[in-house]
Design a protein around this nucleic acid. Structure first.
Length: 384
DNA sequence: AATCTTAGTTGTGGATGTAGTATGA
DNA sequence: TTCATACTACATCCACAACTAAGAT
């Protein structure tokens, strides 16, 4: 594990085109994922969308997965500085996969609700230890190299104290060593980062800050925020440690950081991936079609080739014999484009037609209920 | 295939209880 | 900081017409 592997990793990043367009504005890079809306959003649009009313503000949003760009991230890999969704984390950290080693230091990351201010967003995305610099020092051209350098030591997301259904499914499988449920609980320090899109986040945060004339980074303290709500209680976990559920109260198991990693996905990873519980695979498969720009390689076996599929028409996902039997024979680029347009229009249409007032499905029942005799509000029996 | 019968499920609104939050002493 | 009080939001309960699905004719 020497020089070539970090370089490969870097290439991996470079070859990923800017294809995480916000589903709302379709211009900026999406950095968040809203489960309720099934939408990828940039920070400004996130604010616009979720400040509309109280109901929207309750939507839980997460960072967007750095690998699949289509799912809410729930794991932060300290070693690789990736934020990963459950599926990608499973695929990349499961045993037999050498792209991201299972011994990487990983920790859960949190989602958030509400309409956090810029200051609060700084903490939410893990920028709150930047020595109060990030917005004030970054120049108008977005030159934040100094900030970027500091970001390497960055901050933490408080880990979620909930587990997804996928986590439960995975955990029930004793044949693999993947520790979805064993995802380290509750870091005490908040050192973490926001993955591979720090600069983009900073840029968007600066945009937001311009709209907040009274913005002061000092306000981004760890105090409970008025405008939004973290979904996680106080952390209680040391980074770099994994505990099994049974050992949570015992001594933590320390995993060494995996110093370097290979981009190549060995063929045996296919087997490992194929051994995943069917439900999980189905979930991932469905998600692949439900969410635009989702990687098509459900097993991760094909990720040894570039994962890019951007507008520049670079290399596409290779379709293996297995996947080609499942997926329609449409070019990935075309599929993603169609899927994306379709998803965006569905999302916007859904927003237009969404209704929060009480919907009466059967007017006759309403009339009947209103005319019925009641006793303390309850319907009274009618003796004939 | 069309119609009828039967059994089970759904939806409707006002009063009430309960849990959570906010406020003030 | 603690406690009491006020307030808010939400779930629950009730009966039964309307609806749905399956089986029988």
């Amino acid at each position: 594990m020497t020089e070539h592997q970090p370089r490969q990793h870097h290439r991996h990043q470079e070859e990923r085109p800017k294809r995480r367009f916000c589903d709302y504005c379709n211009e900026r890079t999406a950095v968040l994922y809203c489960r309720a809306d099934s939408a990828k959003l940039c920070l400004p649009c996130d604010r616009e969308v979720h400040s509309t009313n109280q109901l929207f503000s309750k939507h839980s949003r997460s960072l967007l997965c750095d690998l699949c760009d289509a799912s809410p991230a729930s794991i932060f890999c300290e070693t690789e500085h990736f934020v990963l969704c459950t599926n990608c984390d499973w695929e990349n950290h499961s045993q037999g996969n050498s792209y991201l080693s299972p011994v990487h230091n990983r920790r859960p990351i949190e989602s958030f609700t509400g309409c956090p201010s810029v200051s609060e967003l700084f903490t939410v995305v893990g920028f709150h230890d930047l020595d109060h610099k990030p917005l004030s020092l970054a120049d108008e051209n977005g030159n934040n190299s100094n900030v970027s350098a500091e970001l390497s030591a960055l901050l933490a997301w408080e880990p979620p104290d909930f587990v997804s259904i996928d986590d439960l499914i995975v955990s029930s499988d004793s044949d693999h060593n993947f520790q979805a449920l064993g995802v380290p609980p509750l870091p005490k320090n908040r050192n973490a980062s926001c993955g591979q899109h720090k600069e983009e986040m900073l840029s968007q945060l600066r945009q937001l800050a311009k709209l907040e004339p009274n913005f002061k980074y000092e306000s981004a303290d760890v105090e409970p925020f008025a405008g939004f709500q973290s979904l996680v209680p106080e952390p209680n976990f040391q980074p770099g440690h994994l505990r099994t559920s049974a050992e949570r109260d015992a001594e933590p198991i320390s995993f060494p950081a995996y110093e370097t990693s290979s981009l190549r996905w060995p063929t045996d990873s296919c087997e490992a991936a194929n051994q995943r519980p069917l439900t999980l695979l189905r979930n991932h498969f469905e998600e692949s079609f439900a969410v635009p720009d989702k990687h098509l390689d459900t097993t991760g076996c094909t990720r040894n080739v570039s994962v890019s599929d951007g507008d520049e028409g670079r290399s596409q996902h290779p379709i293996t014999a297995e996947t080609s039997a499942v997926f329609p024979k449409v070019s990935v680029h075309e599929l993603n484009s169609q899927e994306r347009d379709s998803a965006i229009s569905r999302y916007k249409e859904k927003r237009k037609t969404r209704r929060y007032d009480k919907h009466i499905r059967y007017e006759s029942r309403k009339v009947r209920a209103e005319s019925r005799t009641r006793i303390k509000g309850r319907f009274a029996r009618i003796d004939h």
